[in-house]
Structure formats: C-alpha cells, structure tokens
Simulated scan of single mutants.
Amino acid sequence: MEITFVGGWASDSAQYPVLAGSARVLVPFSGFRPEELPQLIAENSGVLLSWSTGAHMLLKDCLHLFPQFDQVILIAPFLAFTDSFPERLVRRMIAGMAVNPAEVVASFYANCGEERDLAFDESLTPALTEGLEYLISSRFEPEKTVSIDNLTLVHGIQDKIVRGRAFERVKEFFVPGRIVTPDCGHKISEQVLLELIRA
C-alpha cells in the first residue's frame, strides 16, 4: 500500500520511525515549498496522511486531489493557524529563532507532547522561520461545505497547539467519513497512526 505522509512545522521522520520506513515523507519548508505540494502528490494514490501544517496545506491547495486516494487522514488540521495560536506568540517564536532556534524547536516539541529526544539541525533555521511567517499569513476560507467520504479528521483532545475551536472550524466546512479524537496532545502516537491507516 502506498502511503504519503505530509508532516508539520519542524517535523522529523525520526518522530515516526516505523512509518518513515514504509512511507514517502514530505516535510514542509525544510523539504518543499508550499506551492510545490500539489505537484509532489499529483501522481500518488493509496493513503494520504498529514499532520498540522501539512494538513492545512492539503486542505488549502490539494483538495482536488483527494478523490484519487483510498484514504485521506488529516491530523490536527486548521483553516488558519491563528484561529488557535495567537499571532503574537508566533512572532515571539520567530524572534526566538534568531537567538536560540534549538530552544524554540525544543519548546515546540514539548508542547506537542513529543517524547523522543530529537536532534536539531541549525541549518534548518531559515526554512523554519519562513514556515512561521507562513503560519501567520496563510488562511483558507472554503466557499461551501464539502462532504468527503474518504476523509478522516483526527484531533487529540489534549492538543495545545491546534485547539478545539480551530478544529471545529474545519468541521464546519468539511464533513468527513470519520472523526477520531484520541486522548493525546498535538502529536499522536505512532501506534494510533498505524491503526488509522489499517482502518
């Protein structure tokens, strides 16, 4: 089964080692620019899995490609990041990236509920800063409600990054075939991820 995983801001394949061993992993900003995503997945099929910023990008720019997949799974999606996370805090992160980027990323991982000790590559600082600027400005306002049978929306009930109100805005416009609300934070466990794919 072909699996494509579109990660989130500062995501790392080491966060999901089993999945990374079998899936095509696309990481925004450090691996591709937002406008490149439609072309990157245009020939793909099987399962389209995404997390947070990646889920936002798919809703905004790749909705027309959803029918070619057996499953589309969006974890912690949002229409605008600032629906959940105040712009002033994102700007504080941008300022921090200029001083101590490793600390900013480590703090973000902690708020995600990340349990792995992930190394930070300083060379990614410009790309990650660009990603934060994107999160301030990028927004998607659908023109109408869309029902998508092969869509699963996932939101951890303890998510501190994409909070409930931002997830509810997605549900106002997209009626999925399935909604899953695991008892976790922003990052869901790899076991839950694999169960979602198998389902």
Rank of each mutant, 00 (worst) to 15 (best):
C112N: 02
Y109V: 01
P86M: 11
N111S: 10
I94W: 00
N111Y: 06
E115L: 14
A95T: 08
L89H: 13
S107Y: 09
C112L: 08
E115V: 13
E114M: 15
I94C: 04
R91M: 05
A80S: 15
E87K: 14
V90M: 09
E115K: 15
A80Y: 06
E114H: 13
R91F: 00
A102E: 15
A102S: 15
V104L: 04
E103H: 06
N111C: 07
T82R: 02
V90T: 15
T82C: 09
A110L: 12
V105A: 01
S84A: 14
M97V: 07
E115F: 13
V104C: 04
S107C: 11
L89F: 12
Y109C: 04
G96E: 00
S84C: 14
I94N: 03
R92V: 05
N111I: 03
E114D: 14
P101V: 08
F108L: 13
F85D: 02
G96C: 06
A98D: 15
A102D: 15
R88F: 09
T82L: 04
E103M: 09
C112M: 12
G113E: 05
V104F: 04
A102I: 11
E103P: 05
R91I: 00
Y109K: 02
I94V: 14
R91L: 07
N111H: 08
G96Q: 00
A110E: 14
P101N: 09
D83W: 06
V104E: 00
A110H: 10
D83P: 03
N100Y: 08
A95F: 05
M97Y: 02
M93T: 06
P86Y: 11
N100C: 12
A106Y: 09
F108P: 01
R92N: 13
T82F: 04
I94A: 01
P101C: 11
F85P: 03
F81D: 01
S84M: 11
A110V: 10
R88P: 01
M93E: 09
N111G: 07
C112P: 02
E87W: 08
I94F: 04
A102R: 10
F108R: 03
P101T: 08
T82A: 05
P86F: 10
F85M: 10
L89V: 07
E114Y: 13
E103S: 10
E115W: 12
R88A: 11
R91H: 06
P86W: 11
R91T: 02
A95Y: 05
E115G: 15
N100M: 11
E103G: 05
N100A: 15
V90S: 05
A98L: 10
A106L: 14
N100E: 14
